[in-house]
């Protein structure tokens, strides 16, 4: 299935929760979703016999300065097709449902997105920083991040 067909299928099932199709100027096309419907959509994408997305390639977060986007890249080994999902989140309080119960791979990917961007994944089993120390302040990949002058007695200059 190509992304266009997947979009049509999802639109039938979820209606308004799936945004209208936009042709990408460059790169891969993505399916824009409401953040609230993400978990239900993903369960369908995994279990539907025509979709069979059995592998979550990656979870990433993008800081667009006015919002934060979470991007999910999916792949089906069984049917050899791929899809990218995108949800937009409020930058001041980015929250979205965790997909770690749909694809266990999501657990570490979501921890990284939390570590670097501060996206809170609800119902995540172990949402802690994965790369930086536990007591680190701030989320380094945000555009307005200012590096600390000192950490643990060692200056950063």
């Amino acid at each position: 299935m190509n992304p266009r067909e997947i979009h049509t299928l999802l639109k039938e099932r979820f209606g308004e929760a799936v945004r209208d199709w936009t042709e990408p100027e460059v790169g891969d096309s993505s399916l824009d979703l409401d953040s609230g419907s993400l978990h239900d959509v993903c369960v369908l994408l995994r279990d539907d016999s025509a979709l069979r997305f059995d592998f979550l390639r990656l979870v990433s977060a993008v800081d667009r300065t006015d919002r934060i986007e979470c991007v999910y890249h999916l792949w089906s080994y069984e049917l050899a097709h791929s899809a990218a999902l995108r949800v937009e989140l409020d930058r001041s309080d980015p929250r979205v449902a965790s997909l770690s119960d749909v694809w266990p791979t999501a657990e570490w990917h979501e921890r990284e997105a939390y570590d670097m961007m501060g996206v809170v994944f609800e119902n995540h089993p172990h949402l802690h920083r994965i790369l930086l120390p536990e007591d680190w302040e701030g989320y380094p990949l945000r555009k307005d991040y200012v590096a600390p002058r000192e950490y643990n007695g060692l200056t950063n200059e």
Partner: peptide
Amino acid sequence: RLGYHVVK
């Protein structure tokens, strides 16, 4: 210069 996480 820009590495926030590396000891200099």
